[in-house]
Every structure is written in C-alpha cells, then in structure tokens.
Write a protein that binds this DNA or RNA. Structure first.
Length: 564
RNA sequence: UGUCCGAUGGUGUAAUCGGCAACACAGCAGAUUUUGAUUCUGUCGUUCCAGGUUCGAGUCCUGGUCGGACAACCA
C-alpha cells in the first residue's frame, strides 16, 4: 500500500507531452476527452521503435481518460499490403493495447480528402501541374535559393477542376500530372514550396481496390485524417517537425477541426538498425529468416525470441519521451527482459555443451528421483522430480583439468555440488587419442543427498546436470546481437550496415534437457539454470523441441575469466 | 549567408516553471546465496562555452559552439 504512494510520488514528473496535455485540459482547450492515434503505414512489420510510440499514444489516452485510434496510413498502394496490416494488429494487441472499434484507414477518407482537394482548387489554393518529377525537383530551389513557379501555376480554376477530375477518371498515365498546393515557392521551409497533394498511381489498393488511380500524399492525408477523427494531440517523430507549418496550413485553408501535431525523438538502440528500409533489406536479402527472426528488433521477432510485452512496456516507460536525439543501450532492454523473466519462469536443468560424468561409486542401473524447486524464490511454483543416475552430462565449461585462479567448479581433486543431488569429487579423466576429454570419472558422497553434507563442509560450486539415460535431446538456438558494431550504420567507405552483421548471431546446438521439459508448449518460457532464459520456438515438432535463447543470465564469471 | 529543433554523469530521463542536481541502466566494491543468477548494501561520476539579470541560474536574457531534421509524385 505504501508502494502505490511511492509510485505516485515518483511519477509526478511529467514528460513534455503530458505537460502540454495537462495545460490543454486546464485551459479548457480540450472540450471532451483527449484523442490520440497510432498511425502505422502497412508497409513493414512493427519494431521496438513503434512500440515506444504505441505505448506513448495508448498510454497517454489511458492516463487522461481519452481514446487512441489505430489508423493505417495507407496512401501508397505500391508499397503496402494486407500482410502488414494483419501483423500490425497482432503486434499492437500482443503489446497489451486495445483500440476497440476505432480501427481506421486513411483510405476510409479518400472521398472526403478528394472533396478537400476540390475545395482548395475552387479557392485558388491548388493547381494541376504537368511537370515531371525531375522538373519539379529542378525548380524547387535549395534552402537558400527560392524555387521557381511552375508554368502551370496560373491555370484557371475551371481548368484545374476539369484536369483534376480527369486525373481521377484515369485519363492520364502515372506521373503525367500532380495536384499541387499553391503556397510559397520562396519559403525557407522547403515543405511549403508548392508541395504535391495528389499523384497518379494506377495501382490496386488493399482496401479500395481499383476505385482510385490518384492517391493523396502523406501531407494531404495525415492531418486531414487527424482532423476527421478529432485527434487532439497528433504525436509523431522529429523528422516531421518541418512539416508542421504545412500541416497547419492545410487545416487552416480547409477550415476543419484543428488537430495539433507534436514531435518527439524516435528510439535508437545500440547494435540495432531501426529503419524499415534496412529491416526490409535484411529480410529480402535473406540475411535473417523473415520479419519475425528472433534476432530482428521487430515486435514479432522479439516475441518469438521470448521477450514479454510487459518487459517491453516497462522499457518504454523507463526510456521516457523527449525531443533530443538518443541512443539507448540495448543492455537496458535486456535488463527489463531479465527482470520480468526472473519473476515468471520456472528453473530447469539443461546441458548445452555436454561432457560426460561417470559416478564410479554409484550403483549401475539405479535411478533416483530427486526434488528440484521450480523457482527457489517463489515456493508457489512448486517442485518436480529430477532423475539421477550413474552417468550424467555436465557443461564442458564447468570443468577444467588445470583450474585457473578463482575457478571453483569441477577440477581434479575438487569437490562440487550437483544441484539438488550430491557432492561429487573428480578422480580421473579419460581422454581419447586426440587428447580431448571423453569422460570425467567422479565419486559421490551418499551422505550429501539433496546437496547438503551432514558434516557441514562447504563446496564453492554448484553445477547443473542432466542424467544421461533420461536426457531428452533438443535443439537450442543461441542468439546473439545481430550486429557487431554499436552503430551498424557507421560502415566503412563502400560498405553498408550489412557488412557489420555478426556472423555468430545464431549458433545452433543440440542439447540435453531434463524430462520435465518435454511438456512445454510453443511460446512457453523457462530459465535453464546458470545458462539463460529460453522459450519454445514454433519450429518445434512432436519429435524435437526447439528452444530460442531469449537472453543469457548475467555472467560474472565470464567477466572475471575474460579479463585475463 | 536558409528554416526549424536540440544540448544535464558512460547511456537515458527527471528536477513540481528561479531555491541543496535526482532516478534507472551500465561500471566498481562488498554482503547473502544449493544458479558466479536473483536479492541487499556501498561507491564512482553530470548542467556545451562566454557574458548578463538575480541574494540565488540546469532553468531567464544576449552572443557563440556543437549536433540533428528538411530540397520523393515515400511516410
């Protein structure tokens, strides 16, 4: 109970958008409730950067008793597809947000937006231009040099009306004409130099089919959609800042509901690329196995990897909202993933890189079932039986023939504990002709059953293990970061971010897992003790379980031994 | 010699509108531990620069410096 008070106290600092909203509510600027929207373009899968925006828009609506629409910005049929629409809906839902019936499409408003365009033409604020894209580009000027007027800028209203209608009717080929706003060719803001409002694209649209062959540009669709939906706070990323004067200009000329645009800094993360174009390139170039490859920063990739929605939401909360450029350490995301998984996953034993151990003084053909705690920090998760026998597998890393300093795992003459089982001591090493260790021969102390010795002697190390005859073979997919450099885009001359990919970002291993794990279903999460968090991949079959490594456990020993 | 935006520890984000610069991650050190995990404790370290206003400036003013965005018929 004091917990909630503490939370409130901590949470009374507002980000700049919350500040604006509270000011707007206080001043009476908002008549009903605040209305936000999450406006993805269905031309790719959502990534962790979108998750930030989703948490922001839906979070703001929730906090201030408003609503958040899901609106697809589908004004470019050439690059958009229903596959993306479906994945986006799934991802937003999975993240834990609900848009109710408020699922909209910019294409829902194409008729209305067309009328808006006609109005601007009638008001002498828009004209049909016959210049090619290249000509428009050549006459736009530069930030310091004003652009030149289009030779078609002074067409009569009737002529413009007629031409625009014929554009709509499909009388002209792609690119032959555009509708342009008559704003200011000398504006220092390039966005205001007679921007294109409509272009001709004889393309099939995922929602409107072949009804249209002209489509509005982002600037003449987004703000209009916002206005139609009564969006009070239209929140987008920084690169749209220079579009805001145009956003406001259209709304003013049209005299429609005044939505306001606010911008925040997009998310960047170390060792990650975030642009849709680059993610598409990874997918299309087969550098990864699809959009939901567990190495991808996509929401679907992270879900498949084993990240939880709660962890992602906590991450989004923690990184905050501001206007300055930022690069978040990916370790922060991993922290929230571990934090959540630590609470919810059962602990099981799995040996990824096995070496055989034979307990020479343990009876042959004997099996004992020992009690293992599923989560020592949470008794409510119960216990399970773990089979123990004369032959076991342990992790090769857990044995050193010549132990280095501070190594307190198994070594000749050294006693360690097998978790939930017995103390064992190594007496002998059996090697093959190449000198590689084939088996480690040990003796156990029958008095130490359960992992405690009655004489009170201590051991420094506790190892995980799997009984060899009872072990189930499974596939472990060990993922590491996709890129080797902190900023993958920072590539050498003539190279691209693809050249910065980590060749070892996926390592596939066969592993031995304890029998209890056979019951896991796709998506279920588990901690492999002393190894990491894993979840069951959808590639699993009735015969073979496939585990994705979500994230390793923090490993201090790696740090200590790695320093040398 | 354009317009707009930004600048607080290694990384992010705060500082209730001028009043002791804090929180998280990362780092380091220690305690506990049947996971070298978790947990707990401690610790390191911050206001871009120069002026000005003020009893008092991260916050206000002036001038710099640095960084980013903008010149698709993409969004």
């Amino acid at each position: 109970m004091s917990n909630t008070i503490e939370k409130d106290e901590v949470k009374n600092s507002l980000n700049f958008l919350e500040q604006i909203i509270e000011d707007d509510i206080k001043s009476g600027k908002i008549s009903k409730h605040i209305q936000t929207r999450f406006p993805p373009e269905p031309n790719g899968y959502l990534h962790i950067g979108h998750a930030k925006s989703i948490c922001l828009n839906f979070g703001l609506a929730k906090k201030y008793n408003g609503k958040c629409n899901l609106r697809f910005d589908d004004t470019n049929p050439v690059t958009e597809d229903v596959e993306y629409v479906d994945s986006i809906k799934e991802d937003v839902r999975w993240l834990g947000f609900d848009w109710g019936n408020n699922e909209f499409y910019a294409s829902d408003y194409f008729d209305k937006i067309y009328e808006f365009a006609v109005k601007l033409i009638k008001d002498g604020k828009a004209y049909v231009c016959d210049m090619t894209a290249e000509e428009v580009s050549n006459t736009r000027g530069t930030p310091t040099i004003p652009g030149q007027f289009s030779p078609f800028r002074n067409r009569t209203i009737d002529e413009n009306l007629n031409l625009f209608e014929r554009m709509k009717n499909g009388e002209f080929p792609d690119g032959a004409k555009t509708l342009r706003a008559k704003v200011d060719m000398a504006s220092p803001n390039m966005q205001l130099r007679d921007p294109v409002m409509y272009r001709i694209k004889h393309a099939h649209h995922h929602k409107t089919g072949n009804k249209w062959c002209i489509y509005p540009m982002y600037d003449f669709a987004h703000g209009q959609s916002d206005s139609i939906e009564g969006i009070t706070h239209s929140i987008c990323t920084l690169e749209f800042e220079v579009h805001r004067p145009l956003y406001d200009w259209y709304i003013k000329q049209l005299d429609i509901f005044p939505s306001h645009q606010y911008e925040f800094a997009r998310l960047n993360m170390t060792y990650t690329v975030m642009s849709k174009r680059k993610l598409l390139e990874l997918v299309k170039g087969n550098h990864v196995n699809g959009w939901d490859d567990p190495r991808m920063p996509t929401i679907s990739g992270m879900r498949r990897r084993g990240y939880t929605a709660e962890a992602i939401r906590n991450f989004a909360d923690r990184i905050g909202i501001a206007k300055r450029e930022n690069v978040i350490d990916i370790a922060l995301l991993e922290f929230f993933v571990r934090e959540h998984l630590n609470k919810i996953t059962p602990r099981m034993m799995t040996v990824i890189n096995p070496v055989k151990v034979v307990i020479t003084n343990y009876p042959e053909n004997q099996t004992e079932y020992l009690d293992g705690k599923n989560n020592p920090d949470d008794e409510s998760m119960g216990t399970r039986k773990v089979p123990f026998s004369r032959e076991l597998y342990i992790e090769a890393d857990d044995f050193m023939e010549i132990p280095e300093k501070k190594f307190f795992r198994l070594a000749p003459g050294n006693e360690v504990r097998l978790r939930y089982a017995y103390f064992i001591k190594c007496n002998e090493i059996v090697k093959d002709e190449n000198g590689t260790i084939k088996e480690i021969r040990c003796t156990y102390d029958p008095e130490s059953k359960g992992g405690k010795s009655p004489d009170g002697r201590k051991v420094q190390g506790t190892l995980h293990w799997v009984s060899a005859p009872h072990a189930i073979t499974a596939e472990a997919r060990l993922y590491d970061r996709l890129f080797m450099s902190e900023n993958p885009e920072d590539a050498e001359e003539g190279k691209s971010f693809v050249d910065n990919m980590n060749p070892n970002s996926l390592e596939i291993r066969n592993c031995y897992v304890e029998p209890e794990l056979a019951n896991l279903k796709v998506g279920e999460k588990v901690q492999f003790e002393r190894v990491g968090y894993f979840n069951v991949d959808k590639d699993s079959t009735d015969k073979t379980l496939v585990f994705n490594r979500t994230v390793t456990l923090k490993d201090n020993w790696a740090k200590i031994s790695g320093k040398k």
